[in-house]
Nucleic acid binder design. Structure first.
Lengths: 129, 129
DNA sequence: TTACATCTTGTTATATTATAACAATCTAAA
DNA sequence: TTTAGATTGTTATAATATAACAAGATGTAA
């Protein structure tokens, strides 16, 4: 558990308090007043935060959310549900799912400790409408 | 099962015969001699091909591969293994996996018919080296 | 067969996402 | 305290993707 650098902390705080995934350039616009001026400064912090498991990238959306699941910090094994209407993203913490996927063997008998799963559908709210 | 349009067919043929996922601009360079000159022509064909299930997008790589698994054409439920060294991508066709994921319920009891799963690791060849 | 809707194409321009390259500064451990 | 590694700052550019508009092709139902 290492300490975050200045830029990493600024960017993590922003993502952590956001109710929705943030895109790199949205982050940039929001931290310019804190002295972070260039895309690369944002991407470098994002890379590091992803690497140490503090945030995850939602690949299908090119956006980033904070991790609230202590177990995936090591494993880089992530699962999300994404609402196709309101774009709400929720990290899934299911022991059964993570166990199933960690033990899954492909046809060559290969196992994977690293994966990313994105479920798509409608969230509760959008389903009702 | 609809017929493909001219551009869709050209682009599908290229992806289908490629041993590896292709990126949009790689596709563009390879079909310019066939009269497809602009990115948008490529992206439109790709969108359609993804929509009808003839190809899949590898989200973490921004690349496209042909589908060889008839069942996902309808379901849009996809799973891949990706080698982190050689970038080889293989579509996973596992009844057990697809059944598990199709029946998976999140903590709200929600099921998802649509998902994308990307496993990361080393392929057989790269593991040996 | 016509008329209509829908899909597809072509084209230019631009938006969005991400990295290269180089130099300086900070930080923590030996 | 020195030194390796991490972090920062900066400019430029690469890579990925969409907007907007006009025209042509296609099929389908009256």
């Amino acid at each position: 558990m290492q300490n975050l650098s200045k830029n990493q902390q600024i960017i993590f705080d922003l993502i952590d308090k956001s109710p929705e995934p943030l895109k790199a350039y949205t982050i940039l616009y929001n931290v310019q007043k804190k002295g972070i001026k260039a895309p690369l400064q944002v991407y470098r912090a994002l890379d590091k935060l992803v690497e140490i498991g503090k945030i995850h990238k939602i690949e299908s959306r090119n956006a980033f959310i904070a991790c609230h699941n202590s177990s995936c910090q090591v494993a880089k094994a992530t699962a999300f549900s994404i609402c196709e209407i309101c774009e709400k993203v929720t990290e899934i913490s299911s022991d059964s799912l993570s166990k199933y996927l960690a033990n899954f063997k492909d046809k060559d008998g290969m196992k994977y400790i690293k994966y990313n799963l994105e479920f798509f559908g409608l969230c509760k709210k959008c389903k009702v409408k």
